[in-house]
Design a protein around this nucleic acid. Structure first.
Length: 395
DNA sequence: AGTCCACCGGAAAACATGGCAA
DNA sequence: TTGCCATGTTTTCCGGTGGACT
């Protein structure tokens, strides 16, 4: 595996010219001092939130647009400046941000929001409604004008329904002091259909729609990042163009463009290149895809990993085959198997995550089941199994 | 025309986890 | 502590199903 001695590795790194000057600038969540091409949006958001500076409640606001169109960046940007201004004027406001996709549970989201306005909560054990009541009490007691930014709100709604949002939109009626304004951010343009009309009308008191960046705009954004993040003359112009073109062809996604650029830079550095070229972008494109899969696999719970491996063993198998392989594996590792019903659910989940294909097929006399195949490279899966101390016993 | 396979997927019951209040 | 509660996960139970086969 390891062909180079550790010394050689260090030497190579030291001697190779570094291309990247400031890695942080090249991360997708970096918020620049000046956001390009989003002035209208910034103004709109700032106007909606500005009443806070006078001690009034801010209207609820819905931001939507495709991924990587700057919604999160604009929200954070405005929040940052708002907080700064409030400090300057010595006005007490509380601003909280939560990404409901990474927070992934209603509970975790409330904990995050509570924490960032200064509350402490236990990890588990409380009802969500209890958490929420506490948050409201806190706002009430300290007379805070508050804004909650709920990023990727469509995720929350699709998974857990809009009950919690309903509570939130109604909370101003429960508050005697202070206020709670909501900023919802959604990637999905159709997610409104999932909302109760009462919630929708309240949440979208104001709306800002984010249009995708054009290829030229992407190019400008990349040029700025290159300027800040790379040393002079280390990125080929055609590489930048390619980067912008790739991201542009996928609904003008700036996040993707910046990710591509960073990874390409790393690839080029590692191979000791003098410049980032087009081919580095191509390599980066593949690498990002693979890393995403590896990361998803790594995060999979034990039994789902076993299911994945069972699918590999029973290639082209149907649910029954996969389940019997799975039983063998659990026996080998001497752990308790779960029921086939549960495995069926896991298979559906893995299918939704895009790790496997599991269409239902009819074989007439021979029943009705799912035909299951892996949707990822087998080697990546093997690697993930190997890495995990809980599963490497089955190899 | 009717049977019957091999599982799907909904619903509810059972179990587990962890805070709270007394 | 102990009993209680809410939440989340897994099991149990079971009705449902499209088409190859008789």
């Amino acid at each position: 595996m390891c062909l180079l001695s550790i010394d050689e590795i260090f030497n190579k790194i030291v001697s190779s010219r570094s291309l990247i000057k400031d890695r942080a600038v090249l991360r997708a969540d970096y918020v620049p001092d000046k956001l390009l091409f989003r002035n209208n949006e910034i103004t709109a958001v700032a106007e909606v939130l500005s009443p806070l500076l006078k001690g009034y409640r801010a209207s609820n606001l819905l931001l939507y647009g495709k991924p990587g169109t700057g919604k999160t960046a604009v929200a954070r940007y405005v929040l940052k400046h708002l907080q700064r201004k409030a400090n300057e004027l010595n006005i007490k406001i509380a601003l909280a941000y939560s990404n409901t996709k990474t927070a992934n549970r209603e509970y975790t989201m409330l904990v995050e929001l509570g924490n960032s306005i200064g509350l402490k909560f236990p990890f588990t054990g409380l009802a969500s409604s209890e958490l929420f009541t506490r948050i409201l009490n806190y706002i009430n007691n300290y007379n805070l004008n508050t804004v909650f930014v709920l990023d990727e709100i469509d995720f929350l709604v699709k998974r857990y329904g809009d009950e919690i949002l309903y509570q939130m939109t109604r909370s101003n009626e429960r508050l005697e002091n202070g206020s709670l304004g909501l900023v919802g951010i959604s990637n999905d343009l159709n997610f409104k259909e999932f909302l109760d009309p009462r919630v929708l009308s309240s949440l979208s008191e104001e709306e800002v729609v984010f249009a995708p960046y054009s290829v030229n705009e992407l190019k400008e954004i990349l040029l700025e990042r290159v300027e800040l993040g790379f040393y002079k003359d280390t990125v080929n112009t055609s590489a930048i163009n390619l980067c912008a073109a790739i991201a542009g062809s996928e609904h003008g996604d700036a996040r993707r463009a910046v990710d591509l650029l960073r990874v390409a830079g790393e690839v080029a550095e590692r191979e000791g290149a003098v410049k980032v070229e087009e081919r580095h972008i191509r390599i980066a494109e593949k690498k990002i895809e693979q890393d995403k899969v590896t990361e998803t696999l790594r995060r999979l719970p034990l039994h789902e990993k076993l299911v994945m491996y069972s699918i590999l063993l029973a290639d082209n198998g149907i649910t029954g085959d996969v389940y019997s392989k799975y039983l063998e594996l659990t026996k080998k590792l001497s752990i308790e198997p779960v029921t086939q019903r549960r495995i069926g659910m896991m298979i559906s989940e893995l299918d939704m995550q895009g790790l496997i294909y599991a269409p239902i097929i009819n074989k007439g006399r021979h029943g009705r089941t799912k035909k299951i195949t892996l949707a990822i490279q087998h080697s990546l899966l093997k690697q993930a199994i190997e890495e995990d101390p809980l599963t490497n016993g089955i190899l």
